[in-house]
């Protein structure tokens, strides 16, 4: 068994790459490239990820660099992608699976939840499962059915999996490498609506700097805590800017992971602000926000000025593209929730 710290040591000493402005999609691409250069056991598997570079081009150029044995265009069968990745991991490889869209992970759901999540435990730690499942997720791109969903809670509810989602190009670059270095399986949710968002990326950031499990305060404030991850972090930041104009100071916590959940970072913030609004695109009913609300209530009961509120999707199928912006947590709906929090 290899710990994350041990792997970090083995990865240091790569040549300096400097800082670049990259889109989030390109940052994942660069992270994959760095991981593949570092460790020849890292393989990419998925549908159309070879010459095409994936439907979002996240694997662009990687098959040309690493060959067909390491960037594998698989048969069109998701259970097969994950199931064979498990076998490859047992043989010492570190497969990174691409699921083409969120709505198409379900054929692999059995392999992910009954096998990938459990084999380490089933073998009492004799076998690690260093497998990453990359899933472009979330809405806002005007897509047809099955292409805009946020099923992360289904995975966070399964012990044995780590469930993470980067919100920025820098985090995308770092976190994908940490996910690959993890001896535990990681479901890596990529906010597809943010694939084209640009940001500065320090390409020399050391892998193992613990972004994978640690929430980050991305804006400090004093009056209300906005908790978000993945695509909703941008919404939270925009809301905080709007609130600042109204004279309210919002703190924004980017969770980065929902399993594990960095409760400590959220609690520390809410004890300071006394108010908490959780934002995600997934339905609020049985969503990550419900878990956060429960934990904040347990840990911050006497510090709370108002109930923890949630802003997210409804308990309906993801709507048709024409209505998706009513379903998604918009700045206006978050502002409404903040108003309700202050009404107490």
């Amino acid at each position: 068994m290899t710990t994350m710290a041990e792997r970090t040591q083995t990865t240091s000493g790569a040549r300096a790459e400097g800082t670049k402005t990259l889109t989030l999609g390109k940052a994942v691409n660069e992270g994959l490239r760095a991981a593949m250069r570092r460790d020849d056991k890292v393989l990419l598997m998925g549908e159309d990820i070879g010459p095409l570079g994936g439907v979002f081009r996240v694997t662009d150029g990687l098959q040309a660099e690493f060959g067909e044995e390491r960037v594998v265009d698989t048969p069109l069968a998701e259970s097969g992608i994950v199931g064979t990745a498990i076998g490859l991991a047992m043989r010492g490889y570190r497969p990174v699976c691409e699921i083409q869209f969120d709505g198409f992970v379900f054929p692999a759901f059995n392999q992910i939840t009954t096998q990938l999540a459990k084999i380490h435990n089933r073998t009492r730690g004799a076998i690690d499962m260093p497998v990453v499942i990359r899933i472009p997720y979330g809405g806002g791109i005007g897509a047809v059915e099955h292409h805009s969903e946020s099923p992360e809670a289904l995975f966070a509810h399964t012990a044995g999996l780590r469930v993470v989602s980067p919100s920025s190009p820098q985090d995308a670059y770092t976190m994908i490498q940490e996910a690959i270095a993890s001896p535990d399986p990681v479901v890596f949710f990529e906010p597809k609506g943010r694939y084209w968002a640009k940001g500065e990326v320090d390409l020399d950031v050391p892998v193992g700097s613990a972004t994978l499990n640690a929430a980050q305060v991305v804006r400090t404030g004093t009056d209300v805590t906005l908790v978000a991850y993945g695509p909703s972090v941008e919404t939270a930041l925009k809301t905080a800017a709007a609130l600042a104009e109204e004279g309210r100071s919002a703190e924004v916590v980017d969770l980065r992971a929902i399993s594990p959940l960095d409760t400590g970072a959220v609690v520390a913030s809410v004890r300071k602000t006394g108010r908490c609004v959780v934002i995600h695109e997934a339905p609020v009913f049985f969503g990550a926000g419900a878990e956060i609300a429960a934990r904040v209530t347990e840990e911050c009961f006497y510090a709370l000025e108002s109930p923890v509120l949630r802003v997210g999707g409804f308990h309906t199928p993801y709507p048709v593209a024409k209505h998706e912006h009513e379903y998604l947590p918009s700045v206006d709906r978050v502002l409404d929730a903040v108003d309700r929090a202050f009404a107490h």
Binding site: L43, S79, G87, L88
Partner: peptide, 22 residues
């Protein structure tokens, strides 16, 4: 070890064999 979810391990075997190839 035993796999109880019927058929799931056939994919693990195949993936393992793909690893052997590599």
């Amino acid at each position: 070890v035993y796999t109880v979810v019927i058929g799931a391990h056939a994919l693990h075997a195949t993936g393992y064999a793909m690893g052997v190839q590599r």
